[in-house]
Nucleic acid binder design. Structure first.
Lengths: 186, 186
DNA sequence: CCCAAGTGGTATTGCAGCGATACCATCTGT
DNA sequence: ACAGATGGTATCGCTGCAATACCACTTGGG
């Protein structure tokens, strides 16, 4: 097909980013999936920093993800902490070393410069791609993993924010993290 | 980082498309890389339908790609034809069955609808992403793989188009295919 | 015309991601 | 209280992937 230009471009950018991740991660014995899992965890809120959430976010099976996470823990890039109330759940957090690595490799060198010289309106691009992503996820009945600040459960009360599902208070920083229970405000 | 929204969105779309490809290809014993290789070959011109071009396009090693292509040939999805003048080169072409498969799976079901309901200006999106992709490829000294119609070597002569490198005539359809020797007209 | 360097392609090896399946522990709801 | 659902791990087999080595052919100076 001669159309579908957007599709081919996004797929191509995906391939390119993936091979970049392979190249950049190799010196640290990291495969693309490791960098992606760590990047997600560094942006996930306290309801979404679990193995099952990583698996759903990346579209991989929980069994597979469980093995990757063990490798990351052995490499000293991840810490595990059992949940306080639910005995099945564990919470994951990238270590300081992992966060340093992420800052160096994400986005890959040259990305921000390319975005600049391409003259891209970042706000418009983010809103367009967000809508596209939401549409695809709705078509597949998948989770949205949006930020709390765009979630229909978020309540703004005097003195701060509250999650309408857990009824727990959220800091302003919390509302910028990704949540597994996110549902669009529209 | 709380910015880099475009980066995270494109990476996420890439993950999503990849897992879609895995799901859609599984019934036909096709992995994501197979679909990507076939999709590329269906869009490549006669100078770019070779194993080395596939490897460069996908950012994989030629050895690996060589093995994948043999699998595709065994599966009856690809035909090989030796080059007429250069004894080292082979040309690849997806079979009719492969093209039928591609039409069914590329882009994945729901993509066009999502693009619609997101209200995306396709022309603007294509031009923005093209510029971004070109910038990234320039930063890594990679090939562009653009269409002839945007290539600085393309000559418009009376009666049709001519490639300034090979001095061979190009049909209008040819100028919409991807070329390994492509260099931006800018 | 020749030969060294470069290019396109294949063969082989080892490793690691990935799904499938099975299994266990814990939670939830009626 | 118990059946079903959910989060997580263990094990198996397959396959993508890079690395290395190797071969055939082409190219470009002398």
């Amino acid at each position: 097909m001669v159309q579908d230009g957007t599709f081919h471009l996004i797929e191509r950018l995906g391939s390119l980013l993936r091979s970049e991740q392979r190249r950049l991660g190799a010196p640290h014995d990291l495969e693309p999936v490791h960098l992606q899992a760590l990047a997600y965890l560094s942006r996930a809120n306290r309801y979404s920093d679990t193995p099952i959430a990583v698996a759903e976010f990346l579209g991989l099976t929980k069994g597979n993800v469980s093995q990757r996470l063990m490798a990351l823990e052995r490499a000293g890039l991840l810490t595990r902490r059992p949940d306080g109330t639910d005995g099945r759940v564990v919470h994951l957090a990238p270590t300081a070393r992992a966060r340093t690595l992420l800052r160096a490799l994400t986005p890959p060198p040259g990305w921000r410069a390319a975005l600049q010289t391409a003259g891209i309106d970042e706000a418009a691009m983010v809103s367009a791609l967000t809508a596209l992503l939401a549409g695809l996820q709705r078509a597949n009945a998948q989770r949205t993993f949006g930020q709390c600040q765009t979630c229909r459960f978020l309540r703004r009360e005097k003195g701060g924010f509250v999650c309408g599902l857990t009824l727990e208070p959220l800091t302003p920083a919390d509302t910028q993290l990704l949540c597994r229970e996110h549902e669009s405000a529209a």
